[in-house]
Design a protein around this nucleic acid. Structure first.
Length: 334
DNA sequence: CGTTTTTGACCTGCGC
DNA sequence: GCGCAGGTCAAAAACG
């Protein structure tokens, strides 16, 4: 057991990391057929079997649903700190892409009822509210275990650091050993009183350099902290969240064991506002890609090449915040 | 002293 | 119905 701590400690000292966003859920029906998230085959032995298993239970919608989320209820906005060196996103996480490719980054948006159908959402909410009432009546002490499914958003991060600093303050409330992984799964909850956002962090047993972070729910408050040396990012966050102020100091808490994830909503904004930025050039070495379904159920897939990202960053400046400098300077080849 | 982390126990859902 | 695994709670410890 001490090995884990040793690993984590040693990892915390490393700086090489890349963030991979990947679909926590099966975004497209067609993906069910051959995506890594296909748990229907019963192959629970996959690297993220349990992880995807839990996620696959969600209603699958695309990242674009999250893109349309209200300003004050954005998807969890990961922020890129300083230490990551490479990043690739592949919207549709395929095992080979995510795990085998060192620099793969996948974004996985799994918005659930809340982001899907309004009618269904209402129904579900009503039912769940009643369920909650019932449970409260039956078990006033142990709360409602079966909570309404919150929108989930998962990130695969190739990082040596477990706890990724996304700008929000999290309090760890649990840790569990993962069945098929030597690495435990950590459970975090947003420290904001009225915010019920949760976050799970686990490390891939297949590739211990990959950290899977799953956000559940949406923050109901602006980013409360000022990430270390990331004022610019914070401003972006504030812009997205509809707030203008910075925030109180994060203090040094956790500075040694966390780094900033890239702003996922930067991708979202880019995709929404600057679709032309996204080219279909998807180099094998390092790329960022999204895949999802828009309102018309048409497949949306975009790949980001380092070159594209670099130029984008120069043009827009957004990616400078969320992309590691190394990526912008030179595409990492491995 | 307030906040966060740790950790064992407990609860629930699901598969067999 | 039983057992397993995931998820959460909450008291104690650690930390700043």
């Amino acid at each position: 057991m001490e090995n884990k701590k040793e690993i984590e400690t040693s990892m915390a000292n490393k700086t090489d990391s890349s963030t991979a966003f990947f679909p926590t859920d099966q975004i497209l029906p067609s993906f069910n057929n051959n995506s890594i998230f296909d748990e229907e085959g019963g192959d629970k032995g996959s690297t993220f079997g349990g992880f995807w298993d839990s996620l696959s239970a969600q209603d699958y919608s695309s990242i674009f649903d999250l893109l349309q989320a209200p300003p004050l209820q954005p998807p969890p906005p990961p922020q890129l700190g300083g230490s990551s060196s490479s990043m690739v996103a592949s919207g549709v996480a395929e095992p080979s892409d995510m795990v085998a490719t060192p620099n793969s980054t996948s974004v996985s948006s799994s918005s659930t009822e809340a982001a899907n159908d309004d009618q269904e959402t209402k129904t579900v909410e009503e039912v769940e509210q009643e369920q909650e009432k019932t449970k409260k009546q039956l078990k006033p002490k142990k709360k409602n275990q079966k909570r309404p499914r919150e929108p989930r958003f998962a990130f695969m991060t190739k990082s040596e650091i477990d706890h990724l600093d996304d700008g929000y303050r999290w309090r760890k409330y649990g840790q569990k050993a993962v069945k098929n992984s030597p690495f435990p799964r950590n459970y975090y909850r947003c420290t904001s009183a009225a915010c019920g956002v949760k976050k799970r962090v686990e490390r891939s047993c297949d590739d211990q350099s990959i950290v899977v972070t799953t956000y559940e729910g949406t923050h109901t408050h602006p980013c409360p902290i000022t990430p270390r040396g990331t004022l610019g990012i914070l401003q972006e966050t504030a812009t997205y969240g509809g707030i203008g102020g910075g925030g109180s100091s994060l203090g040094g808490g956790g500075a040694s064991s966390s780094f900033m994830l890239p702003h996922i909503h930067h991708y979202q904004q880019l995709y929404q506002q600057q679709p032309s930025y996204f080219h279909n050039s998807a180099p094998s070495n390092s790329s960022v890609s999204f895949r999802g379904v828009n309102a018309n159920s048409s497949v949306q897939e975009r790949h980001f090449s380092p070159t594209t990202l670099s130029s984008l960053a120069r043009d827009d400046g957004l990616l400078q915040d969320m992309l590691p400098s190394q990526i912008l300077k030179e595409p990492k080849k491995e």
